[in-house]
């Protein structure tokens, strides 16, 4: 007799536990407010990344097309993947001194792991992380970017 009671108890206990689980899924079924899906391409206008989000490395230029990069090459040295290449040239200053300036700051987005070491070590804060995230392109070559704009030059002003 006891075994039959235990048998029935087991069945009812099981059914109760199963119903409890169904209660959870049932709750969400009747509460569409709990839906967390983001409708991505539609919410593009309102979608804002956090200001520290590491999207891609950029070199900010001011209104006079001037940047802060001194072509020191520390970012290139610190990059673990070789995503940054610095091509510098020697320019004569008006005083007649020779000075190294940046010719091309090449950034391979496809190789970057967003470790932030280049930005952390840059002595003149010339590069920053941009919050863009739509990096898909049809051609891999487009992932190689030149960060300094053509015709830009070193800013005379203070470091940022």
């Amino acid at each position: 007799m006891r075994s039959i009671i235990n048998y029935l108890k087991e069945i009812f206990g099981t059914v109760r536990a199963l119903l409890k689980g169904m209660g959870v899924t049932g709750y969400y079924f009747v509460h569409p407010r709990e839906i967390v899906t983001q409708q991505y391409p539609e919410n593009r206008a309102t979608l804002k990344m956090f200001d520290r989000f590491k999207g891609e490395v950029v070199m900010p230029h001011d209104e006079n097309n001037e940047h802060h990069c001194t072509a020191c090459g520390i970012c290139e040295m610190n990059c673990p993947n070789g995503s940054i290449e610095i091509i510098s040239k020697i320019q004569l200053t008006p005083e007649g001194k020779k000075k190294k300036v940046i010719a091309k700051h090449i950034y391979h987005l496809g190789m970057c792991t967003f470790c932030n070491l280049c930005i952390k070590t840059c002595p003149s804060n010339a590069i920053i992380m941009e919050q863009t995230f739509e990096h898909a392109v049809f051609n891999r070559a487009k992932l190689t970017k030149v960060l300094n704009q053509p015709g830009s030059k070193l800013s005379k002003g203070d470091k940022k």
Partner: peptide, 8 residues
């Protein structure tokens, strides 16, 4: 409720 208590 969903998984730990589930007899299965």
């Amino acid at each position: 409720a969903l998984l730990t208590g589930n007899p299965i």
